[in-house]
Nucleic acid binder design. Structure first.
Lengths: 120, 120
DNA sequence: CGTAATGTTCTAGTGCATATAGAACAAGAC
DNA sequence: GTCTTGTTCTATATGCACTAGAACATTACG
């Protein structure tokens, strides 16, 4: 199974779905152009409401990670480079630095979320 | 003013406070050992409830970034190295990679929050 | 000892995010 | 035309985040 959902976890279900797919794309387990299961099917497989899966899909679409088109399904976006190696390395570096300083994942995430730059 | 709060922003007030202080520490504007204003005072200055500031302080304490002791006030933690240069560089690298791929800050933050590693 | 400063705890109200559900609809594929 | 798939609309219920006021505990200091 590509995704596993924990209904008892503290993070919301739709976020768990989005996180799982996002991680799979960045890790290369899901390749650009590859198609994701239909929302209804994934919802049934995860024993979750269809709207929950669609919420996750919507989130990932707003991040530009996937493309959803009605009637045709949902596919992983084909980016210009589609090379996530640099991102993976940057992620690992940041986590290592954060661990070295004893910062929590949440704190690191917050630093990123409110970091200055081009995109909001 | 060290901090600015926007009551109309989408992010909660306590997170804005925590984020501002965290960013100041990482940027070096607040040095280890330096004392933060009393919760009541900062709350009055920001026109926010004291609990909001204390919530932010508690969050930062759980991250290990500050030390709060009743009666004595709140100070920035003195870390072994207290060197945030590597962290700043790693943050900048990740943001750059994220922007290159068109990923949103929220997506990047989520990748960090659920990244594997030693600490949760 | 007394007083001031400071964080902690208790209690509580309000609103919003989350999740689920059903149904009708729109775009595309075949 | 029919099936698939995502979109939109309405509705409901639940829980927690957020904010807030007041009393309390600990520390510092004269």
């Amino acid at each position: 199974m590509l995704l596993t959902i924990d209904p008892t976890a503290d993070s919301p279900l739709f976020e768990q779905v989005a996180t799982g797919i996002r991680a799979a794309v960045v890790a290369g387990d899901l390749r650009p152009g590859e198609r994701l299961p239909a929302a209804r099917d994934l919802a049934a497989a995860l024993e979750v409401n269809m709207h929950t899966v669609l919420h996750a899909y919507r989130t990932l679409r707003e991040e530009g990670l996937i493309q959803v088109r009605r009637g045709r399904g949902t596919v992983v976006s084909t980016r210009s480079s589609a090379d996530y190696r640099g991102l993976r390395r940057a992620l690992a570096d940041l986590v290592r630095e954060g661990d070295r300083l004893g910062l929590s994942r949440t704190g690191l995430a917050d630093l990123i979320r409110h970091a200055p730059g081009t995109a909001p």
